[in-house]
Simulated assay, not measured.
Amino acid sequence: MKAAVLTETGQPLSIVNGVALAAPQRGQLLVKLAYSGVCHSQLMEVRGKRGPDAYLPHMLGHEGSGRVISVGDGVTKVSPGDLVVLGWIRGEGLDGGGVRYECNCPRHSAINAGGVTTFNEYALVSENRVVPLPAGIPLDVAVLFGCAIPTGAGIVTNDIRPVPGNTIAVFGLGGIGMSALMATKLFDCARVIAVDVEEDKLLLAQSLGATDAINARQVDPVAAIKALTGGMGVDYAIEASGQAAVIEQAFASVRRSGGTCVFASHPEHGTRISIDPFELICGKQIRGSWGGGSNPDRDIPLFAKLYLDGKLPLEKLLTRRYSLAQINEALDDMEHHRVGRPLIEIDGNMETPR
């Protein structure tokens, strides 16, 4: 098969042919990929901003969709022929562990992989990293259920659960931030404030229900949020930009006496955030979110129904398609804010239940 492989951090991915397929072992299944998403965390890993990488060379990608080709011993969750969502958040089923692919290529005899990868034509995947594709969900939209939706929307539906009249600010309108923003419309929030540095993303956020939009390149977002909330700040701030400085801004934007900043982003390795401890004494809170507190087997069917009911227009997040050979272009476009959630089309002819 063909795969995009990280051979050296800080360098483009290598498109490698001749990666040998193998039969799935206990707890694993072999999946033929239809589509993959591209998450900001993958960009950080390629650019070497996750710190030392002990597993080079290795495959990447952690949200995708495809069809099960075969299953190993012990796998009962899916069967050959099933369409599935692939994601990094562990769900029900066996953990088949990491994978080491043999490779008939000039530079490497073997390539490492984790429990799930999606920048490749086929993948050996752990059973606990897949969920059966809910009926009616297109295979391209399905990739968002692997990371963006359970993390972003999950922060709102699982971690925050706002009550009527709450105010929320969303910092960073990539796949996770935009998913969180869409999920706020499931609740009766008084104000939903979108914060980003790109006007097209802010316009999309307003079309998806944001009551206010703040361009952080043009104004101080904390001052602007305070002005919109009578000087108090918001009840909740969701930070999804992946920058330590923005986590600090999000924390500064929440009100005293119970305001909460929740972040799911992972800034560059070695960076630190700085907050005034007096603000904690005054009742502000800050916490991280691991995958939006989602259980994929429970939450993906719920989010799928919301999509089918027209309450989560996820197709609007997929702003551009790329081939697997164009993966580095997709990463560059993401890095320079030219695209929302890049979609890698690996086998667009695979049957999809539209």
Rank of each mutant, 00 (worst) to 15 (best):
L317F: 11
E92C: 00
M178D: 01
V141R: 10
L83Y: 11
A34Y: 11
T184D: 06
Y35V: 02
Q249N: 12
L30S: 02
G288W: 08
L317C: 12
D95W: 06
G270W: 10
R26Y: 09
C105P: 00
G172V: 12
L228D: 08
A227E: 15
S79M: 13
K284W: 04
D200A: 07
K226Q: 14
F263K: 09
L314C: 08
S126H: 04
M1K: 09
M334S: 14
G288V: 08
I160G: 03
Q326P: 07
A250I: 08
A205D: 02
G18L: 12
R217G: 14
D299K: 02
G18T: 12
G230S: 11
P106C: 02
I137Q: 07
E239M: 07
V163G: 03
V75Y: 11
V195E: 01
G172S: 12
Q243Y: 09
M182T: 06
G64M: 05
A183P: 01
G146L: 08
D196Y: 06
L314E: 05
A227L: 09
G288D: 06
G231T: 10
V195W: 03
P106Y: 03
E102D: 13
R50N: 14
S179L: 08
P277V: 08
G66Y: 12
R255W: 04
A20I: 15
V99M: 06
D220Y: 10
D82S: 13
A244W: 05
S109G: 14
L30C: 02
S294G: 02
H269N: 12
E8C: 11
D212M: 03
I286Q: 04
A244K: 04
P12Y: 11
V46L: 11
L204C: 06
I214V: 15
A3D: 03
G288C: 08
A223S: 13
K77L: 13
V219C: 08
I344L: 14
E268V: 14
S41T: 13
V234Y: 05
S294R: 02
A227Y: 07
Q206L: 00
A190K: 15
H269T: 09
V195S: 05
H58K: 15
L204W: 07
T184K: 04
V78A: 11
P277M: 01
V246G: 10
S289T: 15
E63T: 07
V84K: 07
D297W: 09
A148T: 10
L124K: 06
G231L: 09
L204E: 02
P132D: 01
E248Y: 05
K2H: 13
A123H: 09
Q25G: 15
